[in-house]
């Protein structure tokens, strides 16, 4: 059997990926997470002194905290299996990435295990988040200085 034949047989046997179903699942669960986030937003606006401008930070922190707890209890794994990207793309996926790496390496000790590996996955999120934010704000600064848009 050569490579081509193998590829052909493999393609025949592999069940088709249910793209539409996966997308729908991701949409629904991702939407649900964002709805919860919005509920938290309104909670902070109504009961604390946050405006729409300032409420983003506490909301993101709360969502990350909740997803960290869920990861620790092993529930986020189930959500992730069901929803795929729907659970990874919102900010809750960040909390999951931090804690799951920490749990994975806890047998290697607190400093070199947990401390050294905690941001193994999330580190790239932080790095590219910060650097792209820098680029975007630089573009905005240029546009504002030129008078195209306002702050």
């Amino acid at each position: 059997m050569n490579q081509e034949q193998f590829d052909k047989i493999e393609q025949e046997i592999t069940p088709p990926t249910p793209y539409v179903k996966n997308v729908l699942k991701a949409f629904l669960v991702g939407g649900l997470i964002c709805t919860i986030g919005h509920a938290i937003t309104y909670f902070y606006i109504i009961f604390f002194d946050f405006t729409e401008k300032t409420v983003g930070n506490p909301t993101a922190a709360t969502i990350i905290f909740i997803s960290m707890l869920l990861t620790g209890f092993g529930l986020y794994k189930k959500i992730g299996q069901f929803a795929g990207a729907g659970s990874a793309v919102p900010v809750s996926g960040f909390g999951n990435a931090v804690i799951s790496a920490a749990i994975e390496h806890r047998t290697e000790g607190f400093v070199l295990g947990v401390g050294g590996n905690m941001f193994k996955l999330a580190g790239s999120v932080i790095l590219f988040g910060v650097s792209s934010a820098f680029v975007v704000s630089l573009i905005k600064l240029i546009l504002v200085t030129m008078g195209v848009i306002e702050w």
Partner: peptide, 12 residues
């Protein structure tokens, strides 16, 4: 002295 806001906090 007029303050106009479309923020939900101020609306609430």
């Amino acid at each position: 002295d007029i303050t106009v806001s479309s923020d939900y906090k101020l609306y609430w």
